[in-house]
Design a protein around this nucleic acid. Structure first.
Lengths: 343, 343
DNA sequence: GCGTTATCAGAAAGCGTTTTCATAGTATAC
DNA sequence: GTATACTATGAAAACGCTTTCTGATAACGC
């Protein structure tokens, strides 16, 4: 191990400033009054020695890690950078550190790596943690905030998510009202995926409120995935199912839908209107530009941190926060876009 | 603050197992032999009490944080998720925690938040830290690995980056050899951006090795940005500069180039071939599909962690690691792509 | 003036581990 | 059988802070 000469400690500062270490600590933390002349000497000593308190020692003594843990399953997806950006910014501005951890299947790890022993609270994204794990944490009252995942009823854990249902409803209503579509395919996401379930509900409610009866034959599985969506669309086309629009579940799946339709020589949007969900980066660049839903993902991250901090301060947190979604109209629904290339 | 009944400590485990805390510690860390029958009792006690050692106490006693810090400037960019994924995976498989921090301009923070006091070593992405800061860290021999940034000569800090020059050279040579282009525009990235400098060098060398003289009038600033690239191309077109190809610096800029060329009714690739760099997600979806360079970003992250761990172990680290880049031929160069929609 | 109350600062007790040092017991050597 | 060398464990000293408890001074009320 490379040798580094021990860096200075609070005792060195105290000695140089001619005070006790308690006083130095008080100057650093500013939680107990210290007379200005003394404080000044201490501050000088600190900067002269370039003293930085050891995080571990503070944590041990104060029983606060001053750290928030973020736990998620996959980094992939256009989603993640925005979420992380929000989380990081808010965490930092609240004066906390951010420890991150993914639970990719790969190495089945024995012990939950983030918890009481190294964080003050946890942010959990979608289903990155087993319900059982969540329950355990919740039982010991460990501060917890979920994102895009509703907890079991008995767990009163705050949740931040987006208006999936509203978004889907806007999308489908737009297809019905503005473009007179009536046979609209819905591509479901993965089994049990909560976002997907809400989107389906929005889809159904839009149909219902416009007096269109729900046809189970138009709901197939797209898995929020290009290939799966492609395959599902191929099958619909081969089976000769009739439809005049597709709500692809998300933008990734929309790419698969585009491919299948083009291959079958169906024009988008004339023969079939297509809409996505998420407004990922490529949505505005594909042709025709994709009509979709935009959600304030970054804000989801920020809000999750805010709620967690409420919890950490022993304050009440909001049990459910739903972020507004916004319809982004481009060309794939049949509208004329004014900005196929810019937001 | 929410009350939580103190969780168990190593002393509780020791008591239950009927041994001393030293023995418990030895069982946990496995660095000193403990007779199997004793170890078994200890392990039973640990799982019965659900004991998890406090990270802070371990750190304080052992003087190792077991944590790697990642410091970067911006989360945006198609780049980041991949890099983070590699870093996260490798960090975890090496048994370290990952603390992340961004240095967005916004809150000018007084003190570097990641350092000796809370991490064992630091991963620094591009220019997220001032040279002065780097120098300080390097002077106290703090383990450091840079990504996509070469350190000043006197700092013998390992660097991981990609073959920017090779990539650019492949791209430009392809345009010259396969598509007989000779007047190739190069859109530079931001001033002082190291990736951009190397790409420019590759561009020049490709020209030179094919006997094409360098024309400074064909090199303009695109800033790796759609709007800037658009503006730069508009200007070239208005000025009546002649060219038959554009190396846009990166894929984002290529979008701006596309827009400008389409607006001027120049066909891509017939009138003007266009190539990018990075192979971001949308590159295969735009029309025509973009010929570009793919770099193993995730591997950059993994390798950076590996080198840092060498340093942490007191071993020698490789001072420069250059990751191979790969030409991804699609349609915008004039080739017929076999996969405009799949990698 | 004297007793009472505020201030400010120091002493010292933790916080929960790792690690060094010491020791009892066992095995090995002759 | 005694001297020697291990081995497995325990006792106790760090590690570098925060925080409680105390005490010394100064300020105040009357």
């Amino acid at each position: 191990m490379i040798h580094r000469n021990r860096s200075s400690t609070i005792a060195d500062v105290a000695r140089l400033a001619g005070v006790s270490i308690a006083t130095v600590s008080r100057v650093i933390n500013g939680n107990t009054p210290v007379i200005e002349s003394t404080a000044l000497r201490v501050r000088d000593a600190i900067s002269e020695l370039k003293f930085v308190p050891r995080a571990a020692a503070r944590t041990l003594a104060s029983r606060r890690t001053n750290t928030i843990g973020l736990i998620f399953s996959e980094i992939g997806g256009a989603f993640f950078p925005l979420l992380l950006k929000g989380i990081e910014a808010e965490t930092r501005s609240a004066g906390y550190e951010l420890l991150i951890h993914s639970t990719q299947a790969a190495h089945a790890q024995k012990r939950r790596p983030l918890g009481e022993h190294n964080t003050d609270g946890l942010l959990v994204f979608t289903s990155s943690l087993e319900i059982e794990e969540l329950r355990k944490l919740s039982q010991i009252n460990f501060p917890l905030v979920l994102m895009h995942q509703t907890p079991p009823d008995e767990m009163n854990t705050p949740v931040i998510t987006i208006e999936n249902k509203d978004g889907a409803e806007m999308l489908v209503s737009h297809l019905i009202e503005k473009h007179a579509r009536r046979r609209i395919v819905f591509l479901q996401g993965p089994e049990g995926h909560e976002d997907s379930q809400w989107r389906e509900r929005g889809y159904r409610e839009a149909l219902e409120s416009h007096g269109i009866s729900f046809d189970p034959g138009l709901v197939v599985s797209g898995e929020f995935d290009e290939e799966q969506a492609f395959a599902a669309m191929r099958k619909l086309l081969l089976d000769g199912i009739e439809f005049d629009a597709v709500f692809s579940g998300d933008d990734d799946a929309a790419i698969g839908v585009y491919r299948a339709l083009k291959m079958a020589n169906r024009s988008i949007p004339d023969d079939v209107a297509v809409v996505g969900f998420d407004d990922v980066q490529f949505s505005r660049y594909i042709s025709p530009a994709l009509t979709t839903i935009r959600a304030p993902i970054e804000e989801v991250g920020r809000e999750a941190v805010r709620q967690l901090i409420h919890l950490l301060n022993g304050e009440q947190a909001q049990s459910l926060t739903l972020m507004r979604t916004e319809l982004v109209i481009r060309e794939s629904c049949g509208c004329k876009s004014h900005d196929s290339h810019k937001s």
